[in-house]
Design a binder for these strands. Structure first.
Lengths: 160, 160
DNA sequence: AGGGTGTATGTTATAACATCACAAGGCGGA
DNA sequence: TCCGCCTTGTGATGTTATAACATACACCCT
């Protein structure tokens, strides 16, 4: 039962947390980036939670565990993790979510269920956008692709 | 020096404000939606400004013109305009921009220059995303597609 | 005219999200 | 040792957004 956030199917969760952490550790080592305790813990929290969390939600957890209670604590760790590609920011929700397939280079796309709030990560490869950019001379650096709708589970009996 | 939103080229600006307003009026009439003074003025402000503006920037203008100074004044008008499709919200910037081609149905994509802040609207048609959605059973309702990079003008000598 | 309904506006307060500025600690290299 | 760099801690503040409630106005129906 591979972890497949791509669909909205359930999966074995404990193993994917461990493997994502291991991957982050390896990547940091390779890049000589420091996966400090706070940073590591934030990543763990996001992985365990397995859904998009606001910075202040993360902060509350950190505070409860003695890491500090001020916003910059959380924001700095999150910024680091986003930079390293272990975590993605969901603009639409002002929230953060652990990457489902770290290690691979990607320009992720997200599907956000407006009913239950679940967020699934997919690959983007937006050719139309690249074409438009090329045509207008825009030098594309990063793309935010976030779809909103209803996940399979919420399609019956959801708020219309 | 306003620039055309589709490419990053400049264009005649006065005429596009007028035509967009006329279009909004016609559309509202057709839909029996009310383009009240505040709403109309907010649309004008965004059209005149011709770039992404924060809700509070808009609010400051409204206040200066006697429309009221409290956040809901601006947010409600903006929400109406977004609903009607006359204005788009740029998630990445927490800002709003007048639609460059109102009247036509569209699922817009944006190119945001990180140096000068200009925002250009393009068409999206993200097939990859639609495919992913279909495959996973996600019922797609709306897409946010925002690219970040450098506009032609900023590609020489920009902050790297 | 009276009364009900719906939409829009006005206002207070506060929630939620994010950053600045500065101090202090740890650690490696010159 | 001393310096420079990165990281953390903390207080204050800035920015974006909504909840909740009251009021006003237009419209329709009787």
């Amino acid at each position: 039962m591979p972890s497949e956030s791509l669909g909205f199917t359930s999966h074995d969760h404990t193993s994917c947390v461990a493997s994502a952490l291991a991957c982050a550790e390896a990547t940091c080592k390779e890049r000589k980036a420091q996966l400090t305790p706070v940073r590591r813990r934030v990543l763990e929290i996001l992985l365990e939670n397995h859904s998009a969390m606001g910075a202040y939600d993360v902060l509350a957890r950190l505070d409860a565990e003695g890491f500090g209670s001020k916003p910059p604590i959380a924001y700095r760790a999150l910024a680091f993790l986003v930079e390293q590609g272990f975590v993605h920011r969901i603009e639409r929700l002002n929230a953060f979510i652990a990457c489902t397939h770290p290690g691979t280079v990607h320009d992720p796309a997200f599907m956000i269920c407006r009913d239950c709030g679940l967020v699934a990560e997919a690959q983007s490869a937006n050719l139309a956008l690249q074409k438009a950019a090329t045509e207008s001379g825009f030098q594309l650096e990063q793309t935010v692709i976030e779809a909103q709708g209803l996940c399979p589970a919420c399609q019956t009996g959801a708020t219309t």
